[in-house]
């Protein structure tokens, strides 16, 4: 399982934000937490690292979502991993 702590920033437009929130609530991968203005706390749980990435990509593509920040990543023993040719080499920016 990949477990991510997310901060989802919603648009200031109420109507679009409401629609986005409804969509988020309906996403079985997500558990929503506190909200502070446009910033919504959430936890995403997926079976694999790859699907974690899909989840974040999906969220970013959701209308009414302005930004998605990953503030916590946890992996438990059952997390699956894929190998990506992109992961090798000298690149990588942290923090």
């Amino acid at each position: 399982m990949g477990i991510s702590g997310l901060v989802i920033t919603l648009t200031q437009r109420d109507e679009a934000a409401g629609a986005a929130l409804a969509k988020l609530r309906g996403d079985p991968r997500l558990t929503l937490g506190e909200r502070n203005g446009p910033r919504q706390a959430a936890v995403g749980v997926t079976p694999s690292v790859e699907q974690d990435e899909h989840l974040v990509a999906d969220l970013r593509a959701t209308e009414g979502v302005v930004d998605v920040e990953i503030v916590f990543v946890g992996l438990d023993e059952t997390t699956e991993h894929h190998t990506s040719p992109r992961a090798t080499g000298t690149g990588g920016v942290g923090c």
Binding site: M1, I3, S4, G5, L6, V7, T31, G33, E34, R35, N36, R39, Q40, A41, A42, V43, G44, V45, E69, V71, F72, G74, D76, E77, T78
Partner: peptide, 25 residues
């Protein structure tokens, strides 16, 4: 047993992190 405990814990930790971030403290 341990896996479940860990998952619960991680979920709580993830939420704590997200909540704190949202609060912008």
């Amino acid at each position: 047993m341990l896996t479940v405990d860990r998952r619960e814990f991680l979920t709580a930790a993830a939420m704590a992190a997200a909540t704190a971030a949202v609060a912008g403290k």
